[in-house]
């Protein structure tokens, strides 16, 4: 009876993938791979967190944001400045980054959410630019282009997270918690409201959904999580300056969400990993690396690699097409 239930649970492809990822996260830190591999893994997890947070507003709720990197930057700077200038423990810095990014999320959401579609996208894009320029020019506080040096490493119970595998354990743990919380959120009434708004704003309002409130909460949560990822980044890199938070990065995160299939959180996570690992794997192409990366990205977008069902459809269509051609011949 029980095994039947497990079997049926595993029959679901999504569940199976989740279990594989979870198992990987548990086993991987103890695999004794090189620090370089762990470094890419940490990067992938940070982007996965970012992609999950953007997926909430852009994927589930359909509000395309082109400025998500701003919250990441705010989180990174908040935590870095607090720990470097005031010597507060790093974990408080993480919480502060989370809260600060949330405040900014609210700050940008309240006046702008009456806008939609292209207008909102352009506005978020300019917001990210404004944040970057503030980071660059408010030299008294942010040290401008000089950046912040010697950001402390996080330590828990006297154990400093010096190696990349120990850092991986921390970020992977947080990412898993965020994943579970987000999937519950998306499957709750609130999540269904978000999907309704994405599909048709007018009719969902007619159905009694408070559109404004729902959107604001989504922005609030999403920004906070991005801020937390930013804080992880700052304490991992141990040096930040405004060039890490340019708008190109927002595009990268958005392409992860798009490649993962808008609103598909597991897809976003997979896409984040693929898009972070790929440029490193392609190093053997030396100068043509980014060219190949672009080509692979186009192919992956067309084939929708993170969505097995649609890939299967595309493949069978291709096969059908070839078969029918042969038949005709």
């Amino acid at each position: 009876m029980k095994t039947d239930r497990i079997k049926s649970y595993l029959k679901n492809r999504r569940n199976l993938t989740q279990i594989i990822i979870l198992a990987f996260c548990i086993v991987f830190p103890f695999c004794n791979a090189s620090q370089y591999v762990y470094r890419i893994a940490v990067s992938s997890v940070l982007y996965a967190i970012l992609a999950m947070s953007l997926n909430l507003i852009s994927g589930v709720c359909g509000q395309i944001s082109l400025g998500h990197i701003a919250y990441y930057g705010i989180g990174a700077y908040t935590s870095a400045l607090l720990t470097v200038n005031f010597g507060i423990p790093v974990w408080i810095g993480f919480i502060a980054a989370f809260l600060m990014a949330m405040v900014f999320g609210l700050f940008i959401a309240i006046p702008t959410l009456k806008l939609s579609g292209g207008y909102l996208s352009i506005l978020t894009l300019s917001f990210a630019e404004v944040i970057r320029l503030i980071l660059l020019n408010w030299t008294d506080v942010t040290r401008g282009a000089m950046g912040i040096l010697n950001i402390p490493l996080p330590s828990f119970f006297g154990f400093e997270l010096r190696s990349s595998n120990s850092y991986f354990i921390m970020v992977a743990l947080v990412a898993i918690i965020i994943y579970i919380a987000m999937s519950n959120l998306i499957n709750s009434k609130f999540g269904r409201n978000l999907k309704a708004i994405r599909d048709d704003e007018l009719s969902s309002e007619a159905m009694g959904i408070n559109i404004y409130r729902t959107k604001v909460i989504a922005f609030f949560v999403s920004a906070g999580i991005a801020g937390l990822a930013g804080a992880f980044y700052a304490h991992y890199m141990r040096f930040i300056d405004p060039t890490s938070f340019i708008s190109d990065e927002s595009t990268v995160i958005l392409s992860m969400v798009v490649l993962g299939g808008m609103g598909n959180m597991l897809g976003s996570v997979l896409a984040a990993v693929i898009l972070t690992v790929l440029p490193e794997v392609l190093r053997s192409f030396s100068d043509y690396r980014m060219l190949v990366y672009g080509a692979v990205l186009v192919v992956m977008m067309l084939a929708k690699v993170t969505d097995w069902k649609s890939m299967k459809r595309a493949l069978s269509k291709m096969l059908d097409f070839r078969l029918s051609k042969e038949e005709r011949a």
Partner: peptide, 18 residues
Amino acid sequence: DDKGTPKEASNIAQLVTS
């Protein structure tokens, strides 16, 4: 190649030192 970005530069640093 680090593309002039800090993220890739740190990856390279780790790759080279490992």
